[in-house]
């Protein structure tokens, strides 16, 4: 296990693996996402209470879900940066933070557009919406802090500490709808209980979550490869690979 772990720290090894998996991630991700969205938009039945406006759920929930799980992954990478000083973990955090920012923004935006016809307001300062806004600022803070520090190693450590401090926000987002009373409803998809949705609505939702997850995998690989190239451009293996026409 430790051997695998240390191998994972090698940018060259990761570069090769990522290049091999990326086409599959892209194709499978696009297909699943497209299937989920078309199904959700055109074929899933409408909701008895909200009518067709609930169809926003097929992008609102996947983006919110991804935004949170990406932050958890970044926190795990932050621990690896601080404890093992593994470069690849820091590469991951830097490559993924802008994607997280975009997904958090998308979940807030779609939530606001959904809230207008159903709740009667674009925005309310309840615990769920506010904690999600804090997540947006955390992603922004991670990006800004990374850019503000020139030295690569100190930037990596500072960013890792910020990511770890911010991770307490994740359980707050998740349980905000249970710990406090909010305008936002509790979660539809639960880990331990049956989802409160019939199959013909649940399947497209799960498809688009899976599709977006794979697309995120593709994006993360691509952006990590770019970051690795920038950092390792003076090394032998990068030169050999690029001169051999490698991507």
């Amino acid at each position: 296990m430790w051997q695998f772990f240390h191998k994972l720290g090698s940018p060259k090894w990761f570069y090769g693996i990522a290049t091999r998996f990326m086409p599959w991630l892209l194709v499978a991700g696009l297909m699943l996402l497209l299937a989920g969205l078309v199904w959700g938009l055109a074929f899933a039945p409408k909701d008895y209470l909200q009518g067709n406006s609930y169809r926003i759920i097929f992008i609102h929930v996947p983006t919110a879900f991804l935004a949170q799980s990406m932050y958890i992954m970044m926190a795990a990478a932050g621990v690896v940066t601080l404890v093992w000083r593994m470069k690849l973990a820091d590469v991951f955090v830097k490559a993924v933070a802008p994607v997280g920012l975009v997904f958090t923004f998308l979940s807030l935006f779609t939530g606001a557009v959904w809230g207008k016809p159903t709740w009667g307001t674009w925005w309310i300062w309840d615990a769920r919406l506010t904690s999600m806004l804090i997540l947006l600022f955390l992603y922004g803070g991670v990006i800004a802090l990374d850019r503000a520090i020139n030295d690569e190693k100190s930037a990596a450590r500072a960013v890792a500490v910020l990511v770890l401090v911010g991770v307490v926000n994740i359980p707050i987002i998740k349980y905000s709808v249970e710990w406090w009373n909010t305008l936002h409803q509790p979660a539809t998809l639960k880990l331990t209980e049956e989802p409160s949705m019939p199959t013909e609505m649940l399947v497209p939702l799960l498809l688009s979550i899976a599709g977006l997850y794979l697309l995120f995998g593709w994006l993360a690989c691509l952006r990590m490869k770019t970051e690795i190239l920038v950092r390792e451009q003076r090394t032998r293996w990068v030169k050999d690979m690029i001169m051999a026409g490698g991507r």
Binding site: G51, N52, S53, F109, V113, T226
Partner: peptide, 29 residues
């Protein structure tokens, strides 16, 4: 049934942002 503008705005913004992010990441790479 009247919810079109809301639903389609969300889907359009989603597609633009995700496709844009994929495009820019690939371009920079």
């Amino acid at each position: 049934e009247g919810h079109g503008p809301y639903v389609w705005t969300c889907y359009a913004v989603f597609v633009v942002f995700v496709a844009g992010m994929m495009f820019w990441s690939a371009r920079r790479n």
